[in-house]
Design a protein around this nucleic acid. Structure first.
Lengths: 247, 247
DNA sequence: GCCGATTTGTGAATCCGGTTCAAAAATCGG
DNA sequence: CCGATTTTTGAACCGGATTCACAAATCGGC
């Protein structure tokens, strides 16, 4: 019985290794040639397996894309774990979360595009349920970080006590602001058409307006560019010191 | 020469009518069967033309989708035109813009999905330049409405004078917030996973936080649910009275 | 170690739908 | 009315995701 079990174990490990290989190579392909550059048969050949073998791991191309996204989301989520422990005020830590996300997106443009494509109804419909759940699960540490910071802010009195709004729902504001700005900034030619430049600077200012509007102390006027810039620099320095956001 | 010219005119009109027919039918198809239900040869057959004829109007499937989106965007943009003239304070008019957008998206879920899919890098790359420009152009009245309201708010002193921020850049905040919330609300299962409900109620509250953070008068505390609800109702009533937002 | 049963891997064939293009039809100018 | 030009046609083409009949590998009992 024991040898059978260890055999079974080995085979499962090998299977997992093969899946990891597929995901890794797929990601490379996407990074180098874009989403269109990823072809199922080419990828299988790259990894020295038959096309059919690839389909034993992923139900469809979309399923594979979701797996790639989940892997990178785990990496991204890792960056947020240490933020609640940073030696900064709660409001600055909230800014740290936003900055970390901006930086990750800037360093991984292909990841941003991939997730944007994935959540498209047409594509999402072809992702298997377990992969969907894995992708959602991968992002959990991010919402946990947000939750922790909001909860602490309330405890400390930096943020007025909740009135019909949970920690998650409070975090929803900056989250939506972030997602929306990424989306607008990435739509080729859109902001240019309205003569809007440096969208991420504006994101930060609007973030401060939002936080100040919720009376998150210490209030910071979004309309004081110099103050906003100084705070951004200060928080970025703290992130760097904590080793968060390194390539 | 004259008959030739009128012939030419007629042919151009016929061509435009045909194009409108294609776009109209394509939109119906999408509404009924989703984006995947739209097939070029089927659509051509539906309209009683050959596939090749369809390709004389649209360079690709994506190009056709962009044309559909532009048409609906024009309809959507039309709703915003009258908002700057509404008998409401500037801040309430800004809210009117947000509410109008929420309502349009709620009434046209397929339109939201279509644009989300279109601005995806992979898809956008296959849209011809004129169609891209037409789509961007179609949204112009919206940004004009925003510009007008922000500019008037500054003139009247409802909003402090600009400091390194244009009217468009001020409008970018609520715009991003809107886009981001739509995006999150539409990602199947995402907000549920974090136990967040009624995302549009939160969008409105965060909108008020944002405006209050920029010191847009009369300031309204996002943390007063009853006040927020009353203001929403009041503005919705004004919109209804002006005939904006009817199906 | 050997053998039939079962599981896993293979890659050529299938399928699908977007796109093309040679031929047919319509229109034009004289 | 006629040849030249433009427009329309839809069957053929093509690329790439997916399948599946077959082959190879592994297994469990002897």
């Amino acid at each position: 019985m024991l040898p059978a079990m260890s055999t079974e174990d080995r085979r499962r490990r090998e299977r997992e290794a093969r899946e990891a290989l597929f995901i890794e190579r797929a990601h490379e392909r996407i990074r180098e040639d874009g989403l269109l550059g990823l072809q199922m048969s080419k990828l299988a050949a790259d990894c020295e397996y038959a096309t059919g073998t690839l389909y034993q791991h992923f139900e469809s191309r979309e399923d594979l894309l979701a797996a790639v996204a989940a892997r990178t989301t785990r990496e991204r989520a890792g960056r947020f774990r240490a933020i609640p422990e940073l030696a900064l005020g709660t409001r600055s830590r909230m800014l740290a979360i936003v900055l970390t996300d901006i930086d990750f997106a800037a360093q991984n443009p292909d990841y941003y595009r991939l997730t944007q494509y994935l959540v498209t109804e047409v594509v999402w419909a072809n992702v298997s349920v377990p992969r969907r759940e894995a992708l959602l699960e991968a992002g959990r540490p991010i919402s946990e970080a947000v939750h922790a910071v909001v909860a602490e802010a309330r405890e400390r009195g930096d943020l007025p006590p909740a009135r019909e709004i949970s920690e998650e729902e409070m975090g929803l504001g900056p989250w939506a602001l972030n997602v929306g700005m990424q989306s607008l900034a990435n739509a080729q030619g859109l902001l240019d058409a309205y003569d809007i430049h440096r969208p991420y600077d504006h994101l930060i200012r609007h973030f401060h307006a939002l936080m100040t509007g919720w009376r998150w102390e210490p209030r910071l006027d979004p309309d004081e560019p110099a103050v906003v810039r100084a705070e951004t620099d200060r928080v970025r320095a703290a992130l760097r010191a904590a080793g968060i956001g390194e390539q």
